[in-house]
Every structure is written in structure tokens, then in C-alpha cells.
């Protein structure tokens, strides 16, 4: 464990908590893409199947459980409890356009052709593109609530910090995982446009609006 990975995990945890609290306290999931949340729940489910077979540390197991519980709780709030506030008209990205190619790629490019490893690879590739429905929804509505932009900033920062962690691990341990690195770079690049808007607008107290 290194400081970059720890900060990355905490940023990821912060993002998940921000979103869950936003939905719970405002009793509304307006502006949030339910499809992205379903994809994130799928990412954690396919990645953490080894939760009970591979014990790495209390921290690792605890975080996996928290991520799983929070992501399913978010999906539940969006599609059941606060379903009336879910903006399905703007959340129209076709999830199958992501899941099918990612599933195929996981079969073709992986470290080990075993079920657990293919599912792990699937989760890595899927996580890289899981935010697309959310970014697509914001581009359609042309704006995002400030709390939602903070959620996206924390979520985008997590994988950016992981990239720094991978550079650090490469130079200190000689460790690198090309699949995670390539997917992590793609994932972070998808946020660049949003990062620019967040820094130039939200941090100046303005509403996050996309140029129509």
C-alpha cells in the first residue's frame, strides 16, 4: 500500500458516500444516471467475487464490502425507493453497447483464461467506461447539480491517483499490470473534459453547465 493508492481509495469511497448521501438526504436522484450506477454495481460484483476466498487484509475486505453495499444501496434507492425522481428520459445511454464489447474484450485480452480472471478483467474494462451514461446524461441535460459534480470529481480523481500509484509501484516494486493501467488511463481520459469544466466553473462557485 502507498499513499497514492490510499488517497485513491479514499477518494473513491468519498465519491460513493457523496452520491448515496445526496440521494438519501434530498430524497431525489435527479441528474444521476441509474445506468452508470448499475454498471458500477456490476463492476464491484464481478471484481470482488474473491472476497471470501482470497483474504488480503482487513482493509481490503472491508472496503470491498463497503463498495458492494453502497453501490447496491444506490441502485436500490434510484430504482425503487426514489424511483419517481429518476430522470429516465435523459438516462438513455444503451448499456449493452458497453457490456457486450467489454465482455468480448475480456475473453480475448486477459492475464489468465480462468473464470475469476476473466470476470476481474471484465470489471476492469467495464469500470473504464461505466461513467459514460452519466457523462452522456449531463451532456443531454446541459448541466449538473453542484453535489453531482463533486461526486464526479472525486470519482475521476480516484483512478487518476491509481495511475500515480502504478507509476510508484513500477519504480519501487517493479510491479505493473498493463490491463489495469491501460483501462485506468482510458477511464481517466474520459473525465478530462469534465475536470476542465469543474476547475474552471464549479471551483469558482458557478453552476456546472455544458456549452449547449
Amino acid at each position: 500500500m502507498n499513499i497514492f493508492r490510499l488517497l485513491g481509495d479514499l477518494s473513491h469511497l468519498l465519491a460513493i458516500i457523496i452520491l448515496l448521501l445526496k440521494i438519501w438526504r434530498t430524497r431525489s436522484c435527479a441528474g444521476v444516471s441509474g445506468k452508470s450506477q448499475i454498471l458500477f454495481a456490476l463492476v464491484f460484483t464481478t471484481r470482488y467475487l474473491d472476497l471470501f476466498t482470497n483474504f488480503i487484509s482487513m482493509y481490503n475486505s472491508a472496503m470491498k464490502l463497503i463498495y458492494l453495499v453502497c453501490s447496491y444501496a444506490t441502485v436500490f434507492l434510484m430504482y425503487f425507493k426514489f424511483k419517481a425522481t429518476y430522470d429516465s428520459n435523459h438516462d438513455t445511454f444503451r448499456m449493452e453497447f458497453l457490456v457486450v464489447p467489454v465482455g468480448g474484450l475480456a475473453f480475448l485480452v486477459n492475464h489468465d483464461f480462468t473464470p475469476l480472471e476473466i470476470l476481474w478483467t471484465f470489471s476492469i474494462y467495464l469500470e473504464a467506461v461505466a461513467i459514460l451514461p452519466q457523462l452522456f446524461m449531463i451532456s443531454k441535460t446541459g448541466e449538473a447539480e453542484t453535489i453531482t459534480s463533486h461526486y464526479l470529481f472525486a470519482l475521476g480523481s480516484y483512478r487518476a491517483l491509481y495511475i500515480v500509484n502504478w507509476v510508484f509501484r513500477f519504480y519501487t516494486e517493479g510491479f505493473f499490470d498493463l490491463i489495469a493501467i491501460v483501462a485506468g488511463c482510458v477511464q481517466t481520459i474520459l473525465y478530462c473534459d469534465f475536470f476542465y469544466l469543474y476547475i474552471t466553473k464549479v471551483l469558482k462557485g458557478k453552476q456546472l453547465t455544458l456549452p449547449a
Binding site: 482470497n54 488480503i56 472496503m63 470491498k64 492475464h111 510491479f175
Partner: peptide, 10 residues
Amino acid sequence: DMDEEFHDEL
């Protein structure tokens, strides 16, 4: 690419 036994990252 170290063929690690399992993935230790979240």
C-alpha cells in the same frame, strides 16, 4: 508483467 497470484488492489 509479474504473474501475481491474485489482485491485491481494489
